[in-house]
Deep mutational scan, measured.
Amino acid sequence: MFKRLMMVALLVIAPLSAATAADQTNPYKLMDEAAQKTFDRLKNEQPQIRANPDYLRTIVDQELLPYVQVKYAGALVLGQYYKSATPAQREAYFAAFREYLKQAYGQALAMYHGQTYQIAPEQPLGDKTIVPIRVTIIDPNGRPPVRLDFQWRKNSQTGNWQAYDMIAEGVSMITTKQNEWGTLLRTKGIDGLTAQLKSISQQKITLEEKK
């Protein structure tokens, strides 16, 4: 169930391209415009997507990853294993993690069937560096609404905000991946996880038929 919630949630996290980005210092504006741009692209490019579902990787690479804190999220997933990894191991892992996100997020976007969304009203940021933004996803086919909290983090150097995690039903996506990959990290280390991520990233994206 959580895996499905995570995939549905990713439908609204794909941010804007650099040329049309919203105010990078306001995570609420980023979330709002990102959702609108993403849904528009999914709707307008269905012919290309249906002809070649792996085209979704391109959308992810162009529109999402430049505005997601990939390395920060990847380091959180590694936890204690990050500090013990060599620079070469980290570089290989982050490259594999990025390719994994292209496949995983692309597969999530393949679930698009006309969903709509509501974003919580903007709250004062103050001096906060981590801000959760509640998004409610509404399914046109009558499924119950899904309420999610996207975690946005302020870059201490640039002042810009980027998304790095999502919490559904009190469970963090980062925590879920830590639990899912924990045994592999304990037995085969970061190299074993890197190899698995490379394998997963090679899987073809498949479209979910409308139910």
Rank of each mutant, 00 (worst) to 15 (best):
Tyr72Met: 01
Ile49Trp: 03
Ser17Glu: 12
Asn141Gln: 08
Gln48Tyr: 08
Ala75Val: 02
Gln115Met: 05
Gln107Gly: 11
Tyr100Phe: 13
Thr86Glu: 12
Thr129Trp: 11
Gln157Leu: 10
Lys154Thr: 11
Ile205Gln: 06
Leu109Arg: 11
Tyr55Thr: 12
Pro132His: 11
Gly126Val: 10
Asn179Ala: 00
Glu99Thr: 13
Gln80Cys: 03
Gly159Glu: 14
Trp152Thr: 03
Val68Met: 15
Gln36Val: 13
Asp32Cys: 08
Leu10Thr: 03
Met6Tyr: 05
Thr176Ser: 00
Gln162Met: 09
Phe150Glu: 11
Pro121Gly: 12
Ile200His: 11
Gly106Trp: 04
Met166Leu: 10
Ile138Gly: 11
Gly189Arg: 05
Asn141Cys: 05
Asn52Pro: 00
Asp61His: 11
Thr25Gly: 10
Lys37Gly: 10
Gly159Trp: 11
Phe150Arg: 04
Thr116Lys: 15
Tyr117Asn: 04
Glu122Gly: 06
His113Thr: 07
Lys198Ile: 11
Pro132Asn: 07
Ala120Gly: 15
Met173Ala: 00
Asn160Val: 09
Leu185Arg: 14
Val135Tyr: 11
Thr38Ser: 10
Gln196Cys: 08
Gln89Trp: 06
Gln36Glu: 07
Ile49Thr: 14
Phe94Tyr: 09
Thr187Glu: 07
Leu56Phe: 09
Asp40Tyr: 06
Ala168Thr: 04
Ile174Lys: 15
Arg4Asn: 13
Phe39Gly: 02
Pro15Phe: 11
Lys71Ser: 07
Ala92Phe: 08
Pro27Ala: 09
Ala18Val: 13
Glu169Asp: 04
Lys204Gly: 12
Leu11Cys: 04
Tyr67Asn: 03
Thr175Asp: 02
Phe2Met: 15
Asn155His: 01
Pro145Asp: 06
Ile174Ala: 00
Lys83Cys: 02
Thr129Val: 09
Leu125His: 10
Glu180Ser: 00
Asn44Ala: 11
Arg50Glu: 06
Gln157Ser: 10
Leu101Asp: 06
Ala168Asn: 08
Ala35His: 03
Gln80Ser: 07
Asn160Gly: 12
Glu209Thr: 13
Lys188Val: 04
Tyr55Leu: 10
Thr175His: 08
Val171Cys: 00
Pro145His: 04
Glu63Thr: 10
Tyr112Trp: 04
Thr187Ser: 13
Val77Met: 12
Ala9Phe: 15
Ile137Tyr: 13
Pro87Gln: 09
Asp54Arg: 06
Ala73Lys: 03
Leu64Ala: 01
Ala19Lys: 03
Gln162Ile: 08
Gly79Arg: 02
Lys154Gln: 05
Asp127Asn: 03
Lys188Glu: 05
Leu10Glu: 00
Ile205Trp: 14
Leu185His: 10
Lys43His: 06
Pro27Asp: 01
Ile137Asp: 00
Lys37Tyr: 11
Gly192Met: 14
Tyr55Val: 12
Tyr81Trp: 08
Pro66Thr: 06
Pro87Ile: 07
Gln178Asp: 02
Leu56Val: 10
Lys211Glu: 15
Leu56Asn: 08
Asp61Pro: 01
Gln36Ser: 12
Tyr67Trp: 03
Gln115Tyr: 02
Ser156Thr: 11
Arg57Glu: 14
Gly182Cys: 04
Met1Pro: 00
Ser156Cys: 02
Gly79Tyr: 00
Gln24Arg: 12
Arg57Cys: 14
Arg4Cys: 14
Ile13Thr: 04
Ser156His: 03
Gln123Ser: 13
His113Phe: 03
Glu33Ala: 10
Thr187Val: 05
Val131Ala: 00
Asp61Cys: 09
Arg90Asn: 06
Ala21Cys: 07
Leu78Lys: 00
Met1Ile: 04
Lys154Ala: 02
Leu56Cys: 04
Glu122Arg: 12
Gly142Lys: 09
Tyr164Gly: 07
Glu63Asp: 12
Ala108Ile: 00
Gln178Cys: 02
Gly79Thr: 03
Lys128Ser: 14
Asp40Ala: 13
Thr183Lys: 09
Asn44Gly: 12
Phe94Glu: 06
Glu209Asp: 11
Pro53Asp: 15
Val146Ser: 02
Pro121Tyr: 09
Arg143Gln: 05
Arg90Met: 02
Tyr117His: 05
Gln157Thr: 07
Ala108His: 05
His113Pro: 09
Leu30Gln: 15
